[in-house]
Design a protein around this nucleic acid. Structure first.
Length: 310
DNA sequence: TGGTGCACGCAGCAGCAAAG
DNA sequence: CTTTGCTGCTGCGTGCACCA
């Protein structure tokens, strides 16, 4: 007998089960790409004294500003979405509440701009988490990680688009089996070989998306979000077949956004057209509502079920 | 300069709770 | 029962002091 795959093809879980990650072909294709850790530094949020959160949460977090406090996030809320968050709290900076007096996490530059991602998964679906762009200088508790860009040329809008993209989300889904997404999983998200310059098209689209969602213009927000994903995927230069496989991975899964988003190109649409061509073509001709009416009807249930199970 | 041991702070595990 | 999310706790890796 001859071994047909190398041992490295497999990954082990914490229970020593041997598994083959989903979308293995895609991750192999991106194996030589730079990883997030090369361009960004990630830290866990601050930690309070043992028992303090359970017994006296009011002492560390209030809904109103109070002396020696800073706006921030302590727990995940229902209105935490990709790019945006509704509910914010004010966290006490009082050293008496610190888990460790010498902790460096409290000294981090919280009042600077950064990306915030949750420490635990937000859903069991293929959309695992939501990345926020924080320009307010929020301080976060240990249920979150903060991500600072190492390079000035690396815009926060691009970083946010990258983390919220189907590629990063699929990567975390297929590489993490725990309740929590570990820092090293976020750090190892593959990046495109060539990064865009500041003020690129993605930056503008992300800024527009945030405005549209704030104004509850969800049709425009959905169109913009599709464009963000399309522009970002273009940078990876994936073979159309692989890009399509990645997008189909999300068909039927609810995305963490304040409107309905459950898929890209219907699986019954059989040609391997890249997303940017698919939406640009549709976008020229019609509004998104009309587009949805004109989408091909899914007829082959076996095919759909097969794609869902991939 | 390199080797060793130790202290400490954080990452992540175990287990709980709430909600459906 | 499952899903989602949280906190208490602790093993371990990092970094530093000390020594040759």
């Amino acid at each position: 007998y001859v071994d047909e795959v190398k041992q490295g093809y497999f990954t082990t879980t914490q229970h020593n089960q041997i598994i083959v990650p989903i979308l293995r072909e895609l991750w192999d294709y991106l194996d030589k790409n730079p990883r997030l850790e090369k361009f960004a530094i990630i830290h866990k949020g601050v930690e309070h004294k043992l028992g303090l959160i359970s017994n006296d949460r009011e002492r560390v977090a209030k809904t109103q500003l109070f002396p020696n406090s800073q706006p921030g996030l302590l727990n995940v809320t229902d209105d935490l979405f990709q790019f945006t968050v509704g509910t914010k709290e004010y966290l006490s900076m009082d050293m008496k509440n610190w888990r460790n007096q010498k902790s460096k996490t409290w000294q981090l530059p919280w009042n600077t701009s950064k990306i915030i991602v949750p420490a635990s998964r937000l859903s069991n679906s293929h959309w695992r988490f939501a990345a926020l762009i924080d320009r307010e200088g929020l301080i976060v508790g240990r249920r979150f990680y903060a991500i600072w860009a190492k390079n000035e040329r690396f815009s926060l809008e691009f970083l946010g688009a990258l983390l919220n993209s189907p590629l990063a989300q699929a990567y975390c889904f297929t590489h993490s089996f725990q309740q929590d997404t570990r820092a090293r999983i976020y750090e190892s998200i593959p990046l495109p070989h060539t990064l865009p310059l500041p003020n690129n098209i993605i930056d503008g689209l992300v800024k527009s998306y945030i405005v549209f969602t704030a104004n509850e213009q969800y049709d425009l927000a959905l169109q913009t979000l599709l464009k963000i994903d399309a522009e970002l995927l273009k940078l990876y230069e994936l073979p159309p077949r692989l890009e399509r496989k990645l997008l189909d991975f999300f068909w039927g899964h609810k995305r963490r956004v304040p409107f309905d988003f459950t898929g890209y190109i219907p699986p019954s649409f059989e040609s391997w057209i890249p997303l940017h061509l698919y939406i640009s073509d549709e976008y020229q001709k019609a509004t998104i509502g009309e587009t949805l009416d004109r989408l091909p009807i899914i007829t082959n249930k076996t095919t759909i079920q097969y794609l869902k199970e991939l």
